[in-house]
Design a protein around this nucleic acid. Structure first.
Length: 308
DNA sequence: ATTTAGACCTGTCAGC
DNA sequence: TGCTGACAGGTCTAAA
């Protein structure tokens, strides 16, 4: 679910709240969420580590820990972090009373005062729980269980993040590099934008938004774009990602921030899931088509499919 | 060498 | 009310 803006927003919130905190203990409620190393080793090695820094690379959230280790988190579709204040209790009785429900839902978190239900809905589907020494709890929740958390030595970061292209909001995302990558690919531009080795962090929402910004049809062959179109698309990628961050990310269903709040970019999206509604630029109805196995949304007038 | 279908998972919503 | 199928911010693997 989360793309670059959602991961960046979470990274900023974590940076402001848990840098300096020490992890006292980790509880794993869905073992496959831990991608590396084996979850037993993961739990053993992470104990007593201090969070020294929080970074983002593409859609990966990276937590630098004391002792030259770092956590890498990829939330895939429905992963979220939720930070609970001290005093919450973990209730695991479901494990015995209803093992089947336990596997899908995980534990229940009980607030310090029973009437305090602010987080109780967001605290469902907890897969991994990080107990901090100061009493707070950092929950990793993920209904669909696609997300992965890994623990790596710092000197193997390249291996942990292999295949990632340049950061779209960094100086390395140049017209020269982008044009060079596109010239080597003859598949549809939408599919190329989703390729993390071309640009890191663009997903289905922001790919559609960037293509609308540049007035380029998602099925245009990547190597058919001229220099002006490539530069416009590059600017579009930067613009829609930057706006997404400013609005706290896009929440259609699942994405929530550290406090369980939805992002506001939902209200600023121009084509994604807007099919059947008039284009904000020309009034033509937005279309939806499946391209590269993903829903694509575009304006057939503003984004014409030019004959090559 | 590329495309594409299937896996991994669960929830929600539309339609019958 | 209940069942079925389509679909959801992602990515990897194997078959065509």
């Amino acid at each position: 679910m989360p793309e670059l803006p959602e991961v960046e927003y979470t990274a900023r919130q974590l940076r402001a709240t848990i840098v300096g905190a020490t992890i006292q203990e980790v509880h794993v409620f869905w073992e496959r969420t831990i991608g590396y190393p084996d979850w037993h080793d993961f739990c053993a090695e992470i104990v007593d580590r201090c969070v020294e820094a929080v970074r983002r690379r593409g859609k990966f959230l990276l937590l630098d820990l004391s002792g030259d280790l770092f956590l890498s988190v990829h939330r895939r579709m429905t992963g979220n972090f939720l930070l609970l204040p001290p005093g919450w209790q973990v209730d695991t009785t479901l494990r015995e009373t209803d093992p089947i429900a336990w596997k899908t839902r995980g534990p229940t978190f009980l607030p310090p005062t029973p009437c305090d239900t602010a987080y109780s809905h967001e605290a469902a589907y907890c897969r991994v729980c990080f107990d901090l020494r100061d009493g707070r709890r950092l929950l990793y929740t993920d209904p669909r269980k696609f997300g992965r958390i890994e623990l790596w030595p710092c000197n193997r970061e390249d291996e942990a993040l292999k295949g990632l292209g340049p950061e779209p909001l960094g100086a390395e995302f140049t017209l020269e590099h982008f044009a060079d990558e596109l010239s080597k690919r003859k598949s549809g531009i939408k599919q190329v934008l989703l390729d993390q080795s071309v640009v890191a962090g663009v997903g289905n929402i922001y790919a559609d938004e960037a293509l609308f910004y540049a007035g380029i049809h998602p099925l245009r062959r990547a190597n058919s774009l001229n220099v002006d179109e490539i530069e416009l698309l590059r600017q579009g990628v930067v613009a829609v990602l930057t706006l997404g961050i400013e609005h706290g990310g896009t929440s259609f269903n699942d994405y929530r921030d550290l406090w369980g709040e939805a992002g506001d970019n939902f209200n600023h999206v121009l084509v994604y899931q807007q099919d059947g509604r008039p284009c904000t630029r020309c009034g033509t109805l937005i279309e939806r088509r499946v391209i590269a196995q993903r829903s694509s949304h575009f304006c057939p007038t503003c984004q014409p499919l030019i004959a090559e």
